[in-house]
Amino acid sequence: MDNKNDHSKTYFNPYFGGVMLGLILLATFYITGRGLGASGAAKSTVVAAVDRVAPKHAEESTYYSKFISDDLHPMNTWLVFEAIGVLAGAFLSGAIAGRLKIKTEHNPKITRRRRLVFALIGGILFGVGSQIARGCTSGAALSGAAVLSLGGFITMMAIFGSAYGFAYFFRKLWT
């Protein structure tokens, strides 16, 4: 298919991407003393939503109350601003490379709907898992492993190990 060349022609060399990501993560640690993250932004959104919809319930629940403080709006966290930056940066890069297109990317052998259902299930699982492990692949695994944190390495190995383990069951979904 011709768009294969179109796609890969414009992607960066993965090692170049890795070195640049490493330098960005290094700059993040150097400037702010903390790593990058992603699931934290989703968490803040959920907390803000629940706080808006059912403030009393949010106050009582032990988990929400951890992230609700009376002087700061739940969305006023570092990760939410970082997520806004990620959206903007990705949009910019997509625009430059001409990949901006509203579509669902799925294996031609499966229907679009099946792909979206699995995306939803994957998201839910990731939501629960990221809260239990206090971080997702970019927060706990990447930033954690970069500072050689024991928890970071365990989470990284658990994520990639279980993904490899379950890959066989989802092979029809992808290949």
Partner: peptide, 18 residues
């Protein structure tokens, strides 16, 4: 994997890091 062939930027980035 065409993108693996473009190594100019990678070399520049590595040199900057070192």
């Amino acid at each position: 994997m065409i993108e693996l062939t473009k190594t100019r930027r990678l070399t520049v980035a590595t040199i900057v890091f070192v």
